[in-house]
Design a protein around this nucleic acid. Structure first.
Lengths: 200, 200
DNA sequence: GCAGCCGTCTTGACAGTGTCTAGTTTCCGT
DNA sequence: ACGGAAACTAGACACTGTCAAGACGGCTGC
């Protein structure tokens, strides 16, 4: 308890010091914020630095370059994504719910999601990114009832993934009517039902 | 015949003149080329201008700004997209083929496709873009057997669109194994078959 | 046939961008 | 207490998109 207080005090007071304390974390948060406001294309590294209250070159020290920062965001996103999918699967045990969680994540963590599937913005060979993205792929395969060694070649697995991903992408891009936006998870379940991919 | 020759000769010889002749067309082509090489995020208006052999500010005159150029590319893309979907539908009359055409288009016209569904890069209120995108949406609804007044709210229509779109996006982003890349249309048909969305 | 207009394109400038280098500040192990 | 290493700053560079002003040339009205 004493430790907790100590650490909190340190983190707070540390903000205006030369050594930030946890600048890496702060930069990721600032990047997520900025992406949430302006989209990933318009993201400026200098604006992120300013938001975190550090000099314009500080991000490069922690992430190498712009793609490095986005890679860190994507990796964090994939980890939370895997958590969400696993949670939905263990709670309900059917694909409808996992797919709905897929869509829900895209909406609630839009900034992360908009970066996660953009290879040209990332360092695709980053170990953390690879680990996290494999983790969420596995969670999804489990959730679509297509677990196993050759899940990648399984038509059912590809169908489940494509359906959820396409739904999420089209939704975020503004291609769906109001009714879908009002109840995205319900809409997705209706869509999944229309494909007989329902329970798996 | 004489006219054709005359026009061709004019277009060719006109390239190095002060008045380009069809700079608008040339800039769109150059943009598509550049996007195909470097992706949409790294697209530089100045690089496009250089590629077309004109000054760096020439694009702005025809398209207003960068988003204007991309909007023109997207509109052209949606028109060709609608053509392709309509062709597949009238030729075969089933959804499998229309979905396969969806995927085929994303691969063959990757540069167009990568721009078409990125609202933050476009002027979404551009009349040409709206017209063309509505056209391809209608073609798709026809192709998924969900034509009619309330097609947008039809779960089956959303399912078909989501499936094809998700498959295409995931494929382009490099998330599918080699086997899928070798025969994308066949893979999609197998995926569609797994959903009971097969014939419509 | 030719004067002038207007659309087409160029030139130059500006603020903002990512990234590199060198330098300054601070922490931490000894 | 001190020396090395890590964290961060400051300045510079080439490049970006956009804007204003000007140069050019095809077309229309006479």
């Amino acid at each position: 308890m004493i430790d907790t207080v100590k650490i909190r005090a340190r983190v707070v007071s540390v903000t205006d010091r030369y050594h930030h304390g946890d600048l890496r974390r702060a930069l990721i948060d600032a990047a997520v914020e900025a992406v949430g406001e302006t989209g990933p294309s318009a993201l400026s590294l200098r604006a992120v630095a300013k938001r975190a209250g550090v000099s314009h070159a500080a991000p490069a020290h922690h992430f190498g370059d712009k793609a490095g920062l986005l890679t860190a965001v994507a990796a964090e996103g994939f980890d939370r994504f895997a958590d969400a999918l696993e949670r939905a699967w263990t709670a309900t045990g059917d694909f409808d719910a996992v797919g709905a969680a897929y869509v829900r994540f895209a909406i609630d963590h839009r900034a992360h999601f908009e970066i996660m599937f953009r290879p040209e913005l990332l360092h695709m060979d980053d170990p953390d990114l690879v680990r996290a993205s494999v983790r969420s792929r596995e969670a999804l395969h489990r959730g679509s009832g297509t677990d196993g060694p050759d899940a990648a070649f399984n038509a059912r697995a590809l169908a489940a993934w494509s359906l959820a991903h396409g739904f999420a992408e089209l939704l975020l891009a503004g291609n769906f009517p109001r009714a879908v936006l009002d109840d995205p998870e319900g809409a997705f379940k209706a869509v999944a039902a229309a494909t007989a991919l329902g329970r798996g």
